[in-house]
Computed example of a mutant assay.
Amino acid sequence: MKVILASPRGFCAGVNMAIECLDLALKTFGAPVYVYHEIVHNKYVVETFKKKGAIFVDDVQEVPSKSILLFSAHGVSPEIRKAAKERDLTAIDATCPLVTKVHLEAIKFAKLGYTICLIGHEGHDEVIGTMGEAPEAIVLVETESDVDQLEIADPERLAYLTQTTLSVDDATRIINRLKERFPSIKGPPKADICYATQNRQEAVRILGTEAQLVLVLGSQNSSNSQRLKELAQESGTPGYLIDGASDIRPEWFDGVEGVLVTAGASAPEDVVQECLDYLVEKFDAKIETRSIREEEVHFPLPKELRKLVQLN
Rank of each mutant, 00 (worst) to 15 (best):
A91D: 12
G120A: 06
G123F: 03
G132Q: 04
P189T: 13
K101G: 03
V168C: 04
T115A: 06
I185R: 06
V127H: 03
K179H: 09
A191C: 00
S167T: 04
E202G: 14
T100M: 03
D148S: 08
T143F: 06
A196V: 15
I107P: 01
R181W: 00
I138T: 14
T162L: 00
C194P: 09
P155T: 11
I174L: 10
P189M: 10
V141L: 11
T209C: 03
F182P: 09
D192Y: 00
R87F: 00
D169Q: 15
I174S: 01
V102T: 12
L112R: 13
Y195T: 12
H121T: 15
I119S: 00
Q201L: 09
I138F: 03
A110W: 02
V99Q: 02
E136L: 06
T143N: 05
K101D: 02
A134Y: 02
N199Q: 12
P189Q: 08
P97Q: 07
H103N: 09
E151R: 15
F109Q: 14
P135M: 09
A84R: 07
G187M: 08
A211Y: 07
I138M: 13
I193W: 00
G129A: 02
F182Q: 05
D93L: 06
K186D: 00
A159H: 02
E122R: 14
I185E: 04
L140I: 07
D93E: 05
E210S: 08
V168Y: 06
T115I: 04
P183H: 08
A84Q: 07
C96D: 04
P97R: 03
I107G: 03
V168L: 10
L207I: 07
L140G: 02
G123N: 15
I138H: 08
D170R: 14
E202M: 14
I128P: 01
R173D: 02
A153Y: 02
E105F: 00
A83V: 06
D146N: 14
A159I: 08
I116A: 03
A94D: 00
V204Y: 05
E156K: 15
L89T: 04
Y114E: 01
T164L: 01
K190N: 11
D169L: 11
K111A: 07
E136A: 10
E142W: 01
A110R: 05
E86C: 04
L118K: 09
K186Q: 13
I119W: 01
L158T: 07
G187N: 04
L112P: 01
I175P: 10
Y160N: 11
A196I: 14
L112K: 15
R205K: 15
E144Q: 12
K186P: 00
I92T: 05
G123W: 01
L118M: 14
L104N: 10
L161P: 11
N199C: 12
E122F: 01
I119M: 06
K179E: 12
A159M: 06
Y160R: 13
R157H: 13
E126R: 14
D154I: 09
